[in-house]
């Protein structure tokens, strides 16, 4: 299938991108890696009049450390492939690298970007829950300047984020998770399939106990979610299967998973419990 016609601009700077988006109004759309957007256009499920291609804005790519906070600052247009192979990400945010390796397939990961995935906000996408678990922050640039949105406020609804139509996601800030164990447990029907449910787990262990755990859930609602009850139950728990299983029983609390071709809500809730147990045990190194 073939996309409907649109105009195309490829700004060189963030300011120019923001200006173009602002002028374009609601018929303008950002083109990041295009790995979701271009298929959507081909299927004629969307009809933007203007695509603003962020592909040639150098400052949107790459990973650096913020000297002030020590956080990682990841340019929104950094590709999945580059995230996976970035030494800073691997050292300080291994969860993000591990989860990104499960996104789609190698060719898609060469084009697809972290910022694009987060802005698309597909509840079946793997990375939103990861950013939620990492307590990441999104930096948006708009006509009124820049603002920082915590991950927990960024994902508003199904395919909707806190970004305004004329805002561009420019940076993702990820606090270092040094010393945290991590695991992303993805459950999909085929290798290249979307997650039926995914669980992103970060665990900090102290003396055989779980001092702190953070759990992000993929595809358990219209937005990514944190399994707060399980996190609370894990705080201070022994890092042993029985204790983790008992805490994981609450993983689906407060979730509202959808029905689709692969799963009913009941099955998703069940999977969330099983996969949370597995992810936490793996992250705690007691698998």
């Amino acid at each position: 299938m073939i996309p409907a016609a649109f105009d195309y601009v490829r700004p060189d700077t963030i300011d120019e991108a923001v200006r173009t988006l602002h002028d374009g109004g609601e018929d303008a759309k950002v083109l990041a890696g295009g790995q979701s957007l271009i298929p959507i256009l081909r299927l004629r499920l969307a009809f933007p009049e203007l695509l603003v291609d962020l592909g040639r804005i150098p400052e949107l790519r790459g990973v650096r450390e913020d000297p002030a906070t020590g956080s990682l600052v990841i340019g929104a247009m950094t590709t999945h492939h580059d995230v996976i192979h970035d030494p800073l990400v691997r050292r300080h945010a291994g969860l993000l690298a591990a989860a990104t390796e499960t996104v789609a397939d190698p060719a898609v990961r060469h084009r697809g970007t972290l910022g694009g995935s987060l802005s698309h906000a597909d509840p079946a996408g793997d990375l939103p829950a990861v950013l939620l678990a990492l307590d990441g922050e999104m930096v948006a640039a708009g006509p009124r300047g820049r603002r920082t949105v915590p991950a927990r406020e960024f994902f508003v609804d199904y395919l909707r984020t806190a970004l305004a139509d004329d805002e561009v996601l420019v940076e993702i800030r990820v606090p270092r998770a040094d010393g945290w164990g991590f695991h992303y447990e993805k459950f999909s029907r085929v290798a290249q399939g979307w997650a039926i449910v995914g669980v992103a787990a970060l665990v900090r262990r102290v003396d055989g106990r779980i001092a702190e755990a953070r759990i992000g859930l993929t595809n358990m609602g219209s937005t990514p979610l944190r399994a707060r009850t399980t996190e609370a139950a894990l705080a201070g728990a022994e890092a042993v299967p029985a204790a983790v299983a008992s805490a994981a029983d609450a993983a689906a609390e407060g979730t509202r998973p959808a029905t689709d071709l692969s799963a009913t809500p009941e099955y998703r809730a069940h999977l969330a419990r099983v996969l949370t147990r597995r992810a936490v045990l793996a992250a705690a190194g007691t698998e």
Binding site: P39, V190, A191, G193, W194, L261
Partner: peptide, 15 residues
């Protein structure tokens, strides 16, 4: 409903 290759699951090599 399984109207595209994203929904109709043709197995790939790892499957």
């Amino acid at each position: 409903v399984s109207g595209t290759m994203a929904d109709y699951l043709v197995p790939a090599a790892p499957d």
